[in-house]
Design a protein around this nucleic acid. Structure first.
Lengths: 159, 159
DNA sequence: CGTATGTCAGACACACTGAAATAA
DNA sequence: CTTATTTCAGTGGGTCTGACATAC
């Protein structure tokens, strides 16, 4: 027996003590699992994980250039192109040239896009619920707060 | 200016509110940064991130087959092969056929391997310190505890 | 001129799958 | 015949870099 395979996260054999204390490892494993869960949930409604972030950015900050959306969402400009193509193909956004700066496209969310965002909002809530299931409300807040502090700190690191 | 590029984690433009509440996103971003930090630190001493886990497993559980190490560390059997080749090339482990089961290799840590583990122990401590820098001791414990609960929960999920 | 934008083409580490060869 | 072990070959999503044409 010894198990066999499936996903490699199991407690059949316990990990070495020092290994478990490795923050990057624990973060990586958890993120990988959460990521696959999210990916599956978005895929089940024909969406990509990036779509939600893009639509949310457009909803909260209004139309903008691709560079601006990239900065707001953290999606690379190069990767954003494909995501916007998909969203445009679904009729959720419109890409039109900016008359004031002809290098730029102005990305605008359509009516369908707003409806899509509402749908993806529900999907996201469900994903969050499944990830954070073992934590109560107070713990979830602490979890987010701690993660955000570490994240913010790492963002300003690399000398 | 609007910044330019560098890593995409910045607070020059703030992220949409809902986006920040996405657990998988926050986990992913944090893990990615921690991961690169760890990778760089290990690379600076000519090591791979997997080496530490493997040596720690050998140290804490003694010699064993590759399948067993894979189970203990969570490294896939296929990826383990390459990592063990590297460790063997450095003289840190020895791979010998198991007389009791000729399918297996017995992996044994050498003296050099023990020294290497001590070195990687220091590297790991430094990495952890850099990642967890903004948290005090109590917060670090809570951070690990919460992460481990979420991780454990996700490991037993996929119906 | 230098810089910003949108785009494409690709590198790279990592998680993961599949299958072959050997042996239990 | 079925199962386990090592190994190799390869897929695929994701992060990230570099270069290019165009326009500021």
């Amino acid at each position: 027996m010894e198990h066999g395979n499936d996903l490699r996260f199991d407690r059949g054999e316990q990990m070495p003590e020092r290994f478990r204390r490795q923050a990057s490892r624990l973060l990586g494993m958890t993120a990988a699992q959460a990521s696959r869960l999210a990916q599956g949930a978005f895929a089940s409604v024909g969406a990509h994980r990036w779509h939600f972030g893009i639509l949310a950015a457009l909803d909260e900050s209004g139309p903008g250039s691709q560079a601006r959306i990239a900065d707001r969402t953290g999606i690379y400009r190069s990767d954003l192109v494909a995501a916007l193509n998909e969203l445009a193909a679904g009729g959720y956004i419109e890409r039109s040239p900016d008359p004031e700066d002809k290098r730029r496209n102005v990305i605008t969310m359509t009516e369908a896009g707003r409806a899509r965002l509402a749908e993806l909002d529900r999907v996201t809530a469900e994903i969050n619920e499944r990830i954070l299931a073992p934590l109560d409300e107070a713990e979830r807040r602490r979890f987010f707060a701690l993660l955000e502090r570490v994240n913010e700190h790492l963002a300003g690191e690399k000398p």
